[in-house]
Amino acid sequence: MKKTIKVAAAVIQNENNEILCALRSPTMSLPNLWEFPGGKLEEGENAREALVREIEEELDCKIVAGDVIADIHHEYEKVIVNLISIKAKIVSGKPVAKEHAEFRWVPIRELESLEWAPADLPTVSVLIR
């Protein structure tokens, strides 16, 4: 039986109605695919707590986590990812690509133009609707 990994992802929107998208680096699993930034939940954390911690670690920003947009289970070859996408707002700092190859602010209507990690696609669909 495959292991399930719980992951929280931030859907951060700016005042121009653009979403912060992160390009996975060539050394990460699923290299060079776009995703919403975030990371794995640690023991005892809920999704919002994990997201605040992960965004501070990955982007060097402080956020406030809001409503859940999507709660997806996606089966990859070796694992099942339970991706919980959460609306978030940056309250201090500017995003810095510490782990990702790059970040990009993308208008919602252009999100489909990026090549996304499969688990993130349902969230993209929700945002476009």
Score class of each variant (00 low, 15 high):
Ser29Glu: 14
Ser29Ala: 14
Leu30Asp: 12
Pro31Gly: 08
Asn32Ala: 09
Asn32His: 11
Asn32Gly: 12
Asn32Ile: 04
Asn32Ser: 14
Leu33Asp: 06
Leu33Ala: 10
Glu35Ser: 15
Glu35Asn: 11
Glu35Trp: 01
Glu35Tyr: 08
Glu35Ile: 15
Glu35Val: 15
Glu35His: 12
Phe36Cys: 09
Phe36Asp: 07
Phe36Leu: 08
Pro37Val: 05
Gly38Ile: 06
Gly38Leu: 07
Gly39Asp: 07
Lys40Glu: 15
Lys40Cys: 09
Lys40Leu: 11
Leu41Met: 09
Glu42Val: 09
Glu42Lys: 15
Glu43Thr: 12
Glu43Ile: 13
Glu43Leu: 14
Gly44Leu: 05
Gly44Val: 07
Gly44Lys: 09
Gly44Glu: 05
Glu45Tyr: 07
Asn46His: 08
Asn46Gly: 06
Asn46Pro: 04
Ala47Asp: 11
Ala47Thr: 05
Ala47Arg: 08
Ala47Leu: 01
Ala47Gly: 00
Arg48Tyr: 02
Glu49Met: 10
Ala50Asn: 05
Leu51His: 02
Glu54His: 05
Ile55Val: 10
Ile55Thr: 11
Ile55Pro: 00
Ile55Arg: 01
Glu56Thr: 01
Glu57Asn: 12
Glu57Ser: 10
Glu57Tyr: 10
Glu58Pro: 00
Glu58Thr: 06
Leu59Ala: 15
Asp60Ser: 13
Asp60Gly: 12
Cys61Pro: 00
Cys61Ala: 03
Cys61Glu: 01
Cys61Lys: 02
Cys61Thr: 00
Cys61Ser: 01
Lys62Trp: 02
Lys62Tyr: 05
Ile63Trp: 00
Ile63Glu: 01
Val64Phe: 03
Val64Leu: 09
Ala65Lys: 05
Ala65Gly: 04
Ala65Tyr: 02
Gly66His: 04
Gly66Tyr: 00
Gly66Ala: 07
Gly66Gln: 08
Gly66Lys: 02
Gly66Phe: 03
Asp67Ser: 14
Asp67Glu: 15
Asp67Ala: 13
Asp67Asn: 12
Val68Leu: 03
Val68Ser: 02
Val68Asp: 06
Val68Gly: 01
Val68Gln: 06
Ile69Ser: 01
Ile69Asp: 01
Ile69Val: 08
Ile69Lys: 04
Ile69Thr: 00
Ala70Val: 01
Asp71Met: 07
His73Ala: 09
His74Glu: 11
His74Pro: 00
Glu75Gln: 12
Glu75Leu: 03
Tyr76Ala: 07
Tyr76Ile: 03
Lys78Cys: 04
Lys78Trp: 08
Lys78Asp: 15
Lys78Met: 11
Lys78Phe: 11
Val79Asn: 12
Val79Cys: 08
Val79His: 13
Val79Pro: 02
Ile80Pro: 08
Ile80Tyr: 01
Ile80Asn: 09
Val81Ile: 15
Val81Leu: 13
Val81Pro: 03
Asn82Met: 03
Asn82Gln: 14
Asn82Glu: 14
Leu83Phe: 11
Leu83Asn: 14
Leu83Arg: 14
Ile84Gln: 13
Ile84Val: 15
Ile84Asn: 07
Ile84Trp: 08
Ser85Thr: 11
Ile86Glu: 12
Ile86Asp: 11
Ile86Tyr: 10
Lys87Leu: 14
Lys87Thr: 13
Lys87Pro: 03
Lys87Asn: 15
Lys87Glu: 15
